[in-house]
Design a binder for these strands. Structure first.
Length: 216
DNA sequence: CCAATTTGACCCGT
DNA sequence: ACGGGTCAAATTGG
Protein backbone atom coordinates (compact mmCIF):
# COMPACT_ATOMS: atom_id res chain seq x y z
CA UNK A 1 0.00 0.00 0.00
CA UNK A 2 2.89 2.34 0.72
CA UNK A 3 4.53 1.32 -2.46
CA UNK A 4 4.62 4.77 -3.82
CA UNK A 5 5.93 6.25 -0.65
CA UNK A 6 8.63 3.71 -0.14
CA UNK A 7 9.59 4.10 -3.73
CA UNK A 8 10.14 7.80 -3.43
CA UNK A 9 11.92 7.27 -0.16
CA UNK A 10 14.22 4.82 -1.86
CA UNK A 11 14.91 7.33 -4.56
CA UNK A 12 15.70 9.90 -1.96
CA UNK A 13 18.04 7.62 -0.11
CA UNK A 14 19.79 6.55 -3.28
CA UNK A 15 20.26 10.09 -4.44
CA UNK A 16 21.53 11.21 -1.08
CA UNK A 17 24.00 8.36 -1.00
CA UNK A 18 25.18 9.18 -4.47
CA UNK A 19 25.65 12.78 -3.52
CA UNK A 20 27.60 11.84 -0.44
CA UNK A 21 29.76 9.53 -2.48
CA UNK A 22 30.34 12.22 -5.04
CA UNK A 23 31.14 14.68 -2.32
CA UNK A 24 33.65 12.36 -0.70
CA UNK A 25 35.23 11.54 -4.03
CA UNK A 26 35.53 15.22 -4.82
CA UNK A 27 37.33 15.89 -1.59
CA UNK A 28 39.57 12.90 -2.05
CA UNK A 29 40.44 13.95 -5.55
CA UNK A 30 41.30 17.46 -4.42
CA UNK A 31 43.35 16.05 -1.61
CA UNK A 32 45.37 13.85 -3.87
CA UNK A 33 45.62 16.56 -6.46
CA UNK A 34 47.48 18.79 -4.04
CA UNK A 35 50.08 16.22 -3.21
CA UNK A 36 53.19 16.16 -5.27
CA UNK A 37 53.90 12.53 -4.80
CA UNK A 38 51.20 10.00 -4.48
CA UNK A 39 52.15 7.51 -1.78
CA UNK A 40 50.06 4.81 -3.36
CA UNK A 41 50.99 5.73 -6.84
CA UNK A 42 52.55 2.41 -7.69
CA UNK A 43 51.21 0.33 -10.48
CA UNK A 44 49.31 1.38 -13.50
CA UNK A 45 46.82 3.44 -11.62
CA UNK A 46 47.59 6.29 -9.26
CA UNK A 47 45.40 6.96 -6.29
CA UNK A 48 44.48 10.21 -7.91
CA UNK A 49 43.18 8.41 -10.94
CA UNK A 50 41.30 6.05 -8.70
CA UNK A 51 39.62 8.94 -6.99
CA UNK A 52 38.86 10.49 -10.34
CA UNK A 53 37.25 7.26 -11.48
CA UNK A 54 35.13 7.03 -8.37
CA UNK A 55 34.06 10.61 -8.86
CA UNK A 56 33.24 10.01 -12.46
CA UNK A 57 31.08 7.05 -11.59
CA UNK A 58 29.11 8.99 -9.05
CA UNK A 59 28.73 11.90 -11.39
CA UNK A 60 27.59 9.69 -14.21
CA UNK A 61 25.14 7.85 -12.00
CA UNK A 62 23.72 11.10 -10.74
CA UNK A 63 23.39 12.52 -14.17
CA UNK A 64 21.55 9.44 -15.35
CA UNK A 65 19.28 8.92 -12.41
CA UNK A 66 18.17 12.50 -12.61
CA UNK A 67 17.22 12.22 -16.24
CA UNK A 68 13.75 10.71 -16.27
CA UNK A 69 11.05 13.23 -16.86
CA UNK A 70 8.30 13.88 -14.41
CA UNK A 71 10.24 13.60 -11.19
CA UNK A 72 10.00 17.13 -10.00
CA UNK A 73 9.71 16.09 -6.40
CA UNK A 74 12.95 14.27 -6.81
CA UNK A 75 14.53 17.34 -8.26
CA UNK A 76 13.25 19.43 -5.40
CA UNK A 77 14.98 17.07 -3.05
CA UNK A 78 18.16 17.46 -4.99
CA UNK A 79 17.88 21.17 -5.18
CA UNK A 80 18.27 21.49 -1.46
CA UNK A 81 22.01 21.11 -1.64
CA UNK A 82 22.75 22.45 1.79
CA UNK A 83 26.45 21.86 1.69
CA UNK A 84 27.08 23.68 -1.52
CA UNK A 85 28.68 20.51 -2.73
CA UNK A 86 28.24 18.88 -6.07
CA UNK A 87 24.62 18.30 -6.63
CA UNK A 88 22.17 18.06 -9.41
CA UNK A 89 20.79 21.50 -9.66
CA UNK A 90 18.08 21.47 -12.20
CA UNK A 91 16.36 19.72 -14.98
CA UNK A 92 14.14 21.12 -17.61
CA UNK A 93 12.49 19.00 -20.21
CA UNK A 94 10.42 21.96 -21.03
CA UNK A 95 10.66 23.51 -24.43
CA UNK A 96 13.59 25.82 -24.62
CA UNK A 97 11.85 29.00 -23.79
CA UNK A 98 14.49 30.73 -21.80
CA UNK A 99 17.24 29.59 -24.10
CA UNK A 100 18.32 32.34 -26.36
CA UNK A 101 20.16 30.95 -29.29
CA UNK A 102 18.27 27.74 -29.70
CA UNK A 103 19.30 26.53 -33.11
CA UNK A 104 17.04 24.83 -35.56
CA UNK A 105 16.82 21.35 -34.13
CA UNK A 106 17.12 21.99 -30.47
CA UNK A 107 13.53 22.31 -29.47
CA UNK A 108 12.14 19.82 -27.07
CA UNK A 109 15.36 18.20 -26.14
CA UNK A 110 15.82 16.78 -22.70
CA UNK A 111 18.10 19.05 -20.73
CA UNK A 112 19.61 18.73 -17.31
CA UNK A 113 22.57 20.18 -15.44
CA UNK A 114 24.97 19.08 -12.78
CA UNK A 115 27.82 20.69 -10.94
CA UNK A 116 30.94 18.63 -10.68
CA UNK A 117 34.65 18.95 -10.18
CA UNK A 118 35.32 16.88 -13.25
CA UNK A 119 34.13 17.37 -16.77
CA UNK A 120 34.75 13.71 -17.44
CA UNK A 121 31.96 11.29 -18.07
CA UNK A 122 31.71 8.03 -19.90
CA UNK A 123 31.08 9.49 -23.30
CA UNK A 124 33.34 10.80 -25.99
CA UNK A 125 32.90 14.45 -26.80
CA UNK A 126 34.19 16.76 -29.44
CA UNK A 127 34.48 20.45 -28.77
CA UNK A 128 32.92 22.63 -31.42
CA UNK A 129 32.76 26.04 -29.87
CA UNK A 130 33.43 28.38 -27.00
CA UNK A 131 31.80 31.61 -26.01
CA UNK A 132 32.03 34.37 -23.51
CA UNK A 133 28.81 34.65 -21.57
CA UNK A 134 27.45 37.97 -20.47
CA UNK A 135 27.32 37.80 -16.70
CA UNK A 136 29.87 35.09 -16.31
CA UNK A 137 33.53 35.34 -15.59
CA UNK A 138 34.37 32.16 -17.43
CA UNK A 139 33.67 31.13 -21.01
CA UNK A 140 31.29 28.34 -21.93
CA UNK A 141 32.46 25.40 -23.97
CA UNK A 142 30.25 23.56 -26.41
CA UNK A 143 30.73 19.88 -27.03
CA UNK A 144 28.89 17.33 -29.06
CA UNK A 145 28.97 13.57 -29.14
CA UNK A 146 31.91 12.27 -31.09
CA UNK A 147 29.64 9.90 -32.96
CA UNK A 148 27.44 12.52 -34.47
CA UNK A 149 28.80 11.83 -37.90
CA UNK A 150 28.93 8.06 -37.57
CA UNK A 151 25.67 7.40 -35.83
CA UNK A 152 23.85 10.65 -35.95
CA UNK A 153 23.94 11.03 -32.20
CA UNK A 154 22.72 14.50 -31.42
CA UNK A 155 23.67 14.66 -27.77
CA UNK A 156 25.56 17.77 -26.77
CA UNK A 157 26.83 19.24 -23.57
CA UNK A 158 28.02 22.58 -22.32
CA UNK A 159 30.72 23.12 -19.75
CA UNK A 160 31.35 26.25 -17.77
CA UNK A 161 33.32 26.99 -14.64
CA UNK A 162 31.22 28.23 -11.79
CA UNK A 163 32.06 31.76 -10.76
CA UNK A 164 31.82 30.60 -7.21
CA UNK A 165 34.57 28.04 -7.44
CA UNK A 166 36.81 27.82 -10.52
CA UNK A 167 37.54 24.21 -9.66
CA UNK A 168 33.93 23.30 -10.23
CA UNK A 169 32.10 23.03 -13.50
CA UNK A 170 28.49 23.37 -14.36
CA UNK A 171 27.75 20.81 -17.01
CA UNK A 172 24.57 20.94 -19.02
CA UNK A 173 23.54 17.93 -21.03
CA UNK A 174 21.25 18.46 -23.98
CA UNK A 175 19.70 15.48 -25.68
CA UNK A 176 20.07 11.80 -25.00
CA UNK A 177 22.72 9.67 -26.57
CA UNK A 178 21.48 7.50 -29.38
CA UNK A 179 24.92 6.16 -30.17
CA UNK A 180 26.22 2.81 -28.97
CA UNK A 181 26.78 3.36 -25.31
CA UNK A 182 29.09 0.42 -25.05
CA UNK A 183 30.95 2.17 -22.39
CA UNK A 184 33.71 -0.07 -21.24
CA UNK A 185 34.04 1.43 -17.84
CA UNK A 186 37.69 1.08 -17.12
CA UNK A 187 37.62 -1.66 -14.57
CA UNK A 188 39.89 -0.70 -11.79
CA UNK A 189 42.13 -3.59 -11.00
CA UNK A 190 44.73 -2.92 -8.39
CA UNK A 191 47.02 -5.84 -7.82
CA UNK A 192 44.21 -8.29 -7.84
CA UNK A 193 43.97 -11.86 -8.94
CA UNK A 194 42.22 -11.99 -12.27
CA UNK A 195 40.37 -15.05 -11.09
CA UNK A 196 38.68 -13.40 -8.20
CA UNK A 197 38.06 -10.12 -9.75
CA UNK A 198 34.52 -9.83 -10.85
CA UNK A 199 34.36 -7.54 -13.73
CA UNK A 200 31.58 -5.25 -12.89
CA UNK A 201 30.66 -3.83 -16.17
CA UNK A 202 27.90 -1.50 -15.54
CA UNK A 203 26.27 -1.69 -18.86
CA UNK A 204 24.16 1.33 -18.76
CA UNK A 205 21.79 0.61 -21.51
CA UNK A 206 20.11 3.83 -22.05
CA UNK A 207 17.60 2.65 -24.48
CA UNK A 208 15.47 5.63 -24.61
CA UNK A 209 13.73 5.34 -27.86
CA UNK A 210 12.93 8.73 -29.08
CA UNK A 211 9.99 8.02 -31.23
CA UNK A 212 9.28 11.64 -31.51
CA UNK A 213 11.50 12.29 -34.43
CA UNK A 214 9.81 15.45 -35.31
CA UNK A 215 11.89 17.18 -37.87
CA UNK A 216 9.90 20.30 -37.91
C1' DC B 1 49.32 13.22 -42.08
C1' DC B 2 45.02 13.00 -39.86
C1' DA B 3 42.11 14.45 -36.36
C1' DA B 4 40.94 17.52 -32.63
C1' DT B 5 40.84 22.33 -31.10
C1' DT B 6 40.61 27.27 -31.75
C1' DT B 7 38.34 31.24 -33.14
C1' DG B 8 35.60 34.61 -35.55
C1' DA B 9 31.78 34.74 -38.61
C1' DC B 10 27.24 33.36 -39.12
C1' DC B 11 22.57 31.99 -37.61
C1' DC B 12 18.44 32.07 -34.76
C1' DG B 13 14.78 33.38 -31.38
C1' DT B 14 13.60 37.09 -28.44
C1' DA C 1 19.93 44.60 -32.44
C1' DC C 2 21.54 41.45 -29.13
C1' DG C 3 22.88 37.33 -26.70
C1' DG C 4 23.88 32.80 -27.22
C1' DG C 5 24.52 28.39 -30.09
C1' DT C 6 26.81 26.47 -34.25
C1' DC C 7 29.76 26.23 -38.37
C1' DA C 8 34.00 25.82 -40.50
C1' DA C 9 38.58 27.47 -41.94
C1' DA C 10 42.89 27.83 -39.85
C1' DT C 11 45.76 26.14 -36.47
C1' DT C 12 47.71 22.89 -33.37
C1' DG C 13 48.90 18.32 -31.63
C1' DG C 14 49.65 13.32 -31.64
Amino acid sequence: MDNNISKSVKYKVVINELIKGQEAATKLKFLLQNQKNYPFGGGSLSSYKLAANVLRSFTEALSIISQPAGCDDLLNLLHSGENGLPVVIKKSSLPAKGGRGCYKRRKNEETWSIVSSTIDDNHSWRKYGQKEIMNSEFPRSYLRCKFKKDQGCLATKQVQKTQDNPDMYEITYIGIHTCNTTLNNDVVLVNSDPDEVKVLTQSLSIKQRISQTRTE
